[in-house]
Amino acid sequence: MKRLISFALITLVALTFLSCGPKNKEEKLAPELAEDARVQFEKERYKEAIEIYTKLRDWYPFDKLAIEAEYNIAEAHFKMEEYDEAALAYQEFEKLHPRHESIDYIIHQQALCYYNRLDTEDRDQSNALKAFSILTRLVKQYPDSKYVEDAEKEKKDCLKSLASHEMYVGRFYFKSKKYQSALNRFETVLEAYSGLGFDAEANELAGKSREKLAEEPEAK
């Protein structure tokens, strides 16, 4: 009976091991897949590289090369400017490997996925907000990182983008004679985005907005 149980356990272990490896003769070992993917990546054939790295990750999830595959999948998406996909891949990598030696780089790359899409002042500023939030976290968690200097400059760019948007909306309200709404925007610039190059105009237009409000019948 003991021999039968031992045989069953050995068989189960063997089947488990085989299930983690190639499933047919055409499937390659992890090092072979890693080399194939590396070649495609260096040739800037990023889609092909992602396909191979994904196979490596899925077929050999416990191999140390799977971590490299996860890392390079994110990098390949970033290289192709597929920023939504890249951001998700970097976030997943950070979640799975929070103590990785390059985690500060991974966080900075997450931020760049949004920073690289900063839009004009008349457009939605959600990318600026997301980039600023991640960059702030990077600086706080890894103050000695070599990416902090760049992160500080990028944070300032995000704030300028947000301030510019507030000014744009404020001017629109002012021209539309919605002076209270305009004043709120200009005051936001002066309070939250002071020193970014908009103070003089914001002060001037805030003053004019108050004058217009004082002239309105309700104010009298």
Score class of each variant (00 low, 15 high):
Lys2Trp: 05
Ile5Pro: 02
Ile5Phe: 09
Ile5Thr: 05
Phe7Thr: 13
Ala8Cys: 12
Ile10His: 00
Thr11Met: 12
Leu12Val: 11
Val13Leu: 04
Ala14Glu: 00
Phe17Ala: 04
Phe17Tyr: 11
Leu18Thr: 04
Cys20Gly: 08
Asn24Trp: 07
Asn24Ile: 03
Leu29Trp: 05
Ala30Asn: 00
Glu32Leu: 02
Glu32Thr: 10
Leu33Glu: 00
Leu33Met: 04
Leu33Asn: 01
Leu33Cys: 02
Ala37Thr: 06
Arg38Met: 06
Arg38Thr: 09
Phe41Val: 06
Arg45Trp: 13
Arg45Ala: 15
Tyr46Ser: 04
Ile52Asn: 10
Tyr53Ile: 05
Leu56His: 02
Leu56Gln: 01
Leu56Asp: 03
Asp58His: 05
Pro61Gly: 07
Phe62Ser: 08
Glu68Pro: 01
Ile73Tyr: 10
Ala74Val: 08
Ala76Glu: 05
Phe78Pro: 02
Met80Glu: 12
Met80Phe: 11
Met80Asp: 13
Glu81Ala: 14
Glu82Ala: 14
Tyr83Trp: 13
Asp84Asn: 15
Ala87Gln: 12
Leu88Pro: 08
Ala89Gln: 07
Tyr90Gly: 03
Tyr90Met: 06
Glu92Pro: 04
Glu94Ala: 13
Lys95Ser: 13
Leu96Cys: 07
Tyr105Val: 01
His108Tyr: 15
Gln109Glu: 06
Gln109Ile: 01
Leu112Ala: 00
Asn116Gln: 10
Arg117Thr: 05
Leu118Ile: 02
Asp119Lys: 11
Asp119Arg: 14
Glu121Tyr: 11
Asp122Ile: 07
Arg123Gln: 10
Gln125Gly: 00
Ala128Val: 10
Ala128Gln: 11
Ala131Ser: 15
Ser133Pro: 10
Ile134Ala: 05
Lys140Gly: 05
Lys140Ile: 09
Tyr142Gly: 08
Tyr142Asn: 04
Tyr142Met: 06
Tyr142Phe: 11
Pro143His: 05
Asp144Gly: 03
Glu149Val: 09
Asp150Gly: 07
Ala151Asp: 02
Lys156Gly: 13
Asp157Arg: 08
Asp157Gly: 07
Asp157Leu: 02
Leu162Pro: 04
Met167Tyr: 11
Gly170Thr: 03
Arg171Phe: 11
Tyr173Thr: 09
Tyr173Glu: 09
Phe174Lys: 10
Lys177Thr: 13
Lys178Ile: 08
Lys178His: 12
Tyr179Thr: 06
Gln180Asn: 11
Gln180Gly: 09
Ala182Ser: 09
Leu183Asn: 03
Asn184Cys: 07
Glu191Gly: 07
Glu191Lys: 15
Ala192Pro: 04
Gly195Cys: 06
Gly195Met: 03
Gly195His: 04
Glu201Pro: 01
Leu205Pro: 06
Lys208Trp: 08
Glu215Thr: 14
Glu216Phe: 14
Ala219Leu: 09
Ala219Ile: 08
